[in-house]
Design a protein around this nucleic acid. Sequence first.
DNA 1: ATAAACTGACCGACCGGTTGGTCGGGTTAT
DNA 2: ATAACCCGACCAACCGGTCGGTCAGTTTAT
Lengths: 196, 196
Amino acid sequence: MKDSGKRVQSKRKIILDAAVQVFSTKGYHNTRMEEIATVAGIGKGTIYEYFDSKLQLFQAMMESSLQIYYNRIDMPKLETLTLEERLSVLFESHITFCRENKDLTRIVFWDTEIWDEDLKDWTYNLRNEKEEKLTGIIQDSIERGEIRNVDAKLLTLLIIGSLGSLWVPITLDDWDISPADMAAQLTDIIMKGIRK
Amino acid sequence: MKDSGKRVQSKRKIILDAAVQVFSTKGYHNTRMEEIATVAGIGKGTIYEYFDSKLQLFQAMMESSLQIYYNRIDMPKLETLTLEERLSVLFESHITFCRENKDLTRIVFWDTEIWDEDLKDWTYNLRNEKEEKLTGIIQDSIERGEIRNVDAKLLTLLIIGSLGSLWVPITLDDWDISPADMAAQLTDIIMKGIRK
DNA sequence: ATAAACTGACCGACCGGTTGGTCGGGTTAT
DNA sequence: ATAACCCGACCAACCGGTCGGTCAGTTTAT
């Protein structure tokens, strides 16, 4: 495997870019080395001049992608900044990054396989239905004057998103906080954040 | 494919349970039908008496898993409940569900493949590092008296989680709200939620 | 009562399609 | 000239799905 020299680096880059494109739309297992080669405009064998194996190519791609993402959303280290300023920078850089790197974003946040179209639709509809219901409930609360005027869809994503990240520590069981307390604190933060 | 009768249903259940176990630890493509059969304590051929194919078995498992999850976290429909009460129920039922169904949770929220151990560790450490940094910043803010006393780790998950769910509408580009506005609203909600 | 016939759930050795990776020979650049 | 680079036909391993055979349990015939 070659790994240094200007020419070599540029060819590696071409292959990595093609890999991002194909892996991100087809998932790891449904991607054929042949296809990456075609997209890169080279022969299959050439890939093996620059990367040892399919897995190693995938890992190299993930590493560079994640490195780019995490460098980008790195929060300013300046001690003088308030938490509010830092959060604002975090959200904005994340959102901008996602807009500018759609393929890459799809891998970083959705490394799943693309199963069958039917299952995809079924899953998507089920989740959408729930999200829309929550958005509706929020919208009602705004109209009834229970909470202040916020973007209901955005708030829905904030809530649904937090559910998605909670499962890791929950299933690991290495947290002293009780489910009831967790729920109470989260509800409290969000309610204080949106109450009139 | 058999599909009715008490005996048939119980055997289907045995196979589905084994499928949850194996698929959730190995991912779809790394799971061998042979292994599901072994875990279920039956022969490989028998699975094909109850399910048409590997994909169909996976889909049946996902459908039943997601159905169980979504039924469980369904928000109370009672009109009399406030948003606060509903959110509280949502969080608590989600957390309890995750605790009680760890294998199943892993599939629903992390349907990814299990790549190589090295990449897993690398990714995990990178994310952890960022999370810990954010938790540290939050902890500092609490100690400096900038915000009220909340569980820093819980707040970190709330924030990181919301990032994870934002990418879908962002990359779809079908939202009239600007990145700056999105970031501002999210920051505003969270800051109002945690300010003293 | 019981032997014979029948049923279908169950099994696992085997088949064949798929695809990651190789390698011998061709092409390009200097 | 020759070294570096590139290629794609080919190989071999892997694994989803098949199918002929087994056997436990049930019904039928005597």
